Amino acid sequence: MVADLKHKTNISFAGTFASSAFAASFAELCTIPLDTAKVRLQLQKKAIGQDGLALPKYKGMLGSVATIAREEGFFALWKGIVPGLHRQCLYGGLRIGLYEPVKSFYVGNDFVGDVPLSKKILAALTTGALGITIANPTDLVKVRLQAQGKMSSGVQKAYSGALNAYSTILRQEGIGALWTGLGPNIARNAIINAAELASYDQVKQTILKIQGFKDDVYTHILSGLGAGFFAVCIGSPVDVVKSRMMGDKTYKNTLDCFIKTLKNDGPLAFYKGFIPNFGRLGSWNVIMFLTLEQAKKFFIKEA
């Protein structure tokens, strides 16, 4: 995805944005069932049975996927796909499309050699924060739709679809509600974007220095897995807070959500859904970067 500044390529921002948006959307389409399972696990609070023991409804990645499919139907696993694609077109296009220009800005146009990791992280933090500030409403609607479980007979769902969700939130909660959870969402996406793009950049750069490796599919897969792992390890706590704030309107603010989650569910709650999150982000990054590397070939002209 990322070209060392020693090997400059001629590609317009429009070309980078288009290929990034396409790659991110394709990865979203392939992996959203795991994301739906992750959201349900993150929103799940402790339930107490008659014997006083906790009885969680959703158990693990595959268990959650199976429960959702059994109770709500197979296609319920793709809840939120429409705003999810809206999100990836906006956020994916911006955060990835702007990464190279912003990185070049931070090191200077005359820089030659390997870009320092600190500059890569700074560039990814910047583009992640900017991108999600614009795309937050799409993220909110996606989480709200994913959070809707099977309703009891006669109980109407809060939202019938993406457009209905946008209009209902606007009408009932006001335009500002579309930016609910913006604080933790900026923190989460800036951090995860830095973990993904900077680690992919760094891992790929390191691998290509090893004898026998070249810029091919195998390198892209290894780099994508590394990006996904770092993203989950670093971003899981803020991801949980973001999901809870967007999926549950009872929290006053980010700090309130953090404190209540810690008090009621314990510190491990911040890593709820870790396995499905890694399963999702690991596979998401592999698919996205593989697709992106191929898509950019339609726009790249060697300088």
Rank of each mutant, 00 (worst) to 15 (best):
K8A: 13
S19Q: 10
F22A: 07
I32L: 06
L34T: 01
K38E: 04
K38R: 07
L41E: 03
Q42A: 08
L43G: 10
L43H: 03
I48P: 13
L53F: 07
L55A: 09
M61P: 06
S64E: 03
T67W: 07
G80H: 08
G84F: 04
Q88G: 11
C89P: 05
Y91M: 12
Y91F: 10
G92Y: 04
N109S: 15
S118L: 11
L125Y: 05
T133P: 15
T133F: 11
A135P: 13
D139W: 03
V141S: 15
V141P: 14
K142T: 12
Q146W: 03
G149K: 07
K150V: 00
Y166N: 13
Y166Q: 10
G183V: 05
A195F: 00
A198W: 11
I207D: 05
K209F: 07
I210R: 08
D216G: 15
Y218S: 14
S223I: 09
F229I: 03
C233W: 03
V240P: 11
K242E: 04
R244M: 00
R244W: 01
G247S: 04
D248V: 01
N253M: 02
D256C: 06
C257I: 02
K260G: 09
N264M: 05
I275Q: 15
N277H: 10
N285F: 06
F289A: 09
L290C: 11
L290K: 06
